[in-house]
Design a protein around this nucleic acid. Structure first.
Lengths: 126, 126, 126, 126
DNA sequence: GTGGTCTAGACCACG
DNA sequence: GTGGTCTAGACCACT
């Protein structure tokens, strides 16, 4: 498992870890019941505190992405792709809603709005 | 000038004030050179700390939306609609970019993406 | 708000706090939007670490019993008595199911089982 | 002797073993003086540490369910059904007491409580 | 070795 | 003052 930490980004370290693990589980890089690095070894690798990795793992467990066996370690939970999918869908909706709200505020018409959008949809699957 | 504070929203109070003042200036509710309430009276009205209103006004002044005359008070600066417009445009782009990124991640195709979007564009001017 | 900590009980301190706060919210001792003691003052009162009280509050917030405003404090969330009620109901069911399972294992008949139960139902409302 | 380990269950592995051995002794699946698998072979079968099986056997011996002959192995002790019976009875009482306590807390009346209970007593001997 | 819990102490943003 | 985040280091139970 590979995790990259960006100390300059405002997002908390534990959140960066959570995000990346989720993504790797969803993408299949991490398979069900595959063991994750121990909180201690991950902390050492990333040169951060054990507490920070622990917090990330706690969050992942609470969200149902991994399960932890005391004295053994943490493992990838049953895929349940729905989980990640729904979380992202809700986030997408929130972003779109806010974008539309702001667009309405400055009187952007739908044509212009969609043109702006088209600048980003290049990478999408059709 | 009317400001509404939502303590539970998570966004800092000073930011809520800044946001709403900007919007009222852009919408024309606040006209050029119109005096804003003093930081003290606004703080009293909203039952928040003077420090908080002060910070909001500072932010607004720094961004060029209001100007302050020492010993007299703060006033709405020349409209400069561009300012607000561009700020929002950048925010819209950021939201759309993030939405597209997330959509790509879960393999949402463009058709479905646009359908989700259409749930929110109902209120847009055309 | 009054919290009692039992250092000898095996249950973690933060859990004891969570339990007692939940109960006080459910019983009405803590009303909606009522401020809870700050994590620091509570920690001082109970002579435990700030981290422990923080963890309890985090758990309560995650479960929807309180909400926290950074820089201001924590407050009792909208009652939503359902939350506590359902949590307890699930726990009751789990205990009863396990009791029945064990009783079946040692061949206890229903009459004897109910007699044992009656030793405890004295305090129940009818 | 067959033992099933559930890594995700949360209860310690050694306890799972103890539980299951006790049950098999009580049910008669394991007869008096019947030899149990060696701690090493059991550990190998279950793919767990020898230390863990050792601990389980120690616990069983301490509780009087099995006896160990140095250099030979472990054997099922004289049934002493009372032992298992009383242990279970105490556990049943604890579960019922807690269930009643929780029910009282949410104001569940006895009728409703017994109705919930009846969902589980279907499998009981009468 | 592992995670679970608890501790003391730090810096930051917000009020 | 508040909570949010991060740190270093401790003891415990389990493997």
């Amino acid at each position: 498992m590979t995790i990259w930490i960006d100390n300059k980004s405002g997002t908390p370290i534990y959140e960066q870890i959570v995000e990346q693990v989720k993504r790797q589980i969803f993408s299949g890089d991490l398979q069900e019941d595959e063991p994750l690095p121990s909180i201690r070894s991950l902390a050492k690798d990333l040169r951060i505190s054990v507490i920070t990795t622990k917090r990330a793992y706690e969050e992942l467990e609470r969200a149902g992405f991994i399960y932890t066996v005391a004295g053994k370690g943490s493992y990838v939970a049953a895929p349940n792709g729905e989980l990640f999918w729904e979380e992202n869908l809700r986030a997408i909706e929130a972003h779109l809603e806010e974008a539309v709200r702001l667009a309405t505020e400055i009187g952007l018409n739908e044509t212009d709005f969609l043109e702006i959008l088209s600048n980003f949809t290049g990478g999408m699957l059709n």
